[in-house]
C-alpha cells in the first residue's frame, strides 16, 4: 500500500508539472484539505494466502467427460478462445495422459486406472518459476503477496522466452487476434490481444473478491485450493494424509499443484 501510494503521488506530481498543471494542482489542493489520503487496497472479502496451492484428487476423474465441465468453467470465465488449428491453440487447463503429464514417472507396466485416467494439466505456479527468471520485462512475475505466477499483458513484448523456459508446456501465445474465436464472452473479464503470452492465473481475479478458482468450484470437491504455507489449511491436511505427486519435481521448480493418484 505504501509503495502504491508513493507511486500514485509521484505520477500525479510528474503529470501535474505538464501542460495541465493549474487545474490539477487546484483540484489536489482543494481535495487534500478535506481528506489527505488517496489509497489503493485489497477488497475486504479478498482471499489471501502466502503461497496458493492446489491438490487435484485424480481418483475422481474417470473419463474426459469428467474434466469437460472444469475446463469449460475456466475457459469461459477467462475468455480463452477455442482455436481449431493446433499450432495456435490457447489453453489454460487441459487434459493429458499420465505418461505425458508425468514423463519421468510413467511405469513400463502401468496400472490400468492411471494408464487410462485423464489428468488435468495447468500452470504449476512454481515456487521457483523459470518463466519469471527469463522474462526480460518482468511481464510475468511471481506475486510476492500470494505466490501466484501472473502475466501482465500490458507489458508482455511477446518474445516467448517464458514458453521456452516452462518445462510444463503451460503457456500459450496469441498467434492471432483471439476475439473471433471466443464463442461467448464473459464481459467482466478482459480478453487478450495478439502477440502476448497467456496462461492460468489461479483465478487471481476471483480470489480478490472472495471466490475460489473456477476449476475448483466446478470440480465437485476433486480440486482443493488453499494456502500451502498454512499448516492448518485443507490442502495441507490432504497432503498429510495422502501420497501425492507433482510434475517434474526433479527440476527444482517446486510446483504448487499436487496430484493424488
Amino acid at each position: 500500500m505504501e509503495d502504491s501510494r508513493r507511486r500514485f503521488l509521484m505520477l500525479a506530481g510528474i503529470s501535474a508539472v505538464g501542460l495541465t498543471a493549474k487545474p490539477v494542482l487546484d483540484a489536489f489542493a482543494a481535495e487534500q484539505k478535506q481528506h489527505p489520503t488517496i489509497g489503493l487496497k485489497k477488497a475486504k472479502d479478498a482471499l489471501t494466502a502466502k503461497q496458493w496451492g492446489m491438490v487435484i484428487d485424480t481418483r475422481n476423474f474417470h473419463s474426459a467427460d469428467d474434466l469437460e465441465p472444469i475446463i469449460e468453467a475456466c475457459h469461459k470465465t477467462h475468455n480463452v478462445p477455442s482455436i481449431e488449428n493446433e499450432h495456435h491453440e490457447v489453453k489454460w487447463i487441459w487434459e493429458e495422459h499420465f505418461h505425458n503429464a508425468f514423463p519421468g514417472l510413467a511405469q513400463k507396466y502401468q496400472d490400468e486406472r492411471t494408464e487410462h485416467a485423464p489428468f488435468l494439466a495447468l500452470c504449476n505456479h512454481c515456487e521457483n518459476p523459470p518463466c519469471c527468471r527469463v522474462c526480460p520485462t518482468k511481464a510475468t512475475f511471481k506475486r510476492e503477496s500470494d505466490g501466484i505466477v501472473l502475466m501482465d499483458f500490458h507489458r508482455c513484448i511477446g518474445c516467448r522466452f517464458c514458453m521456452a523456459a516452462c518445462p510444463y508446456g503451460s503457456r500459450s501465445f496469441n498467434f492471432r487476434d483471439p476475439r473471433p474465436f471466443i464463442e461467448e464472452t464473459n464481459k467482466s473479464f478482459p480478453t487478450r490481444m495478439k502477440g502476448v503470452v497467456e496462461k492460468c492465473n489461479f483465478c487471481a481475479e476471483r480470489l480478490a473478491v472472495g471466490k475460489l478458482p473456477a476449476c475448483a468450484e466446478a470440480s465437485d470437491g476433486a480440486i482443493v485450493f488453499g494456502d500451502l504455507y498454512d499448516p492448518a489449511s485443507e490442502v495441507r491436511e490432504l497432503l498429510r494424509t495422502n501420497y501425492t505427486i507433482r510434475r517434474k519435481q526433479g527440476l527444482g521448480t517446486e510446483p504448487a499443484v499436487y496430484y493424488i493418484v
Partner: peptide, 22 residues
C-alpha cells in the same frame, strides 16, 4: 520475432538483470 514489437523498449523501461535476454 516479437509479438508486440512496439513495446520493445519495455526491456529498458523495466530492466531485468535476471533475464539472459536482457
Amino acid at each position: 520475432d516479437l509479438g508486440q514489437p512496439m513495446r520493445v523498449f519495455n526491456t529498458l523501461l523495466y530492466p531485468s538483470p535476471g533475464s539472459i535476454l536482457f
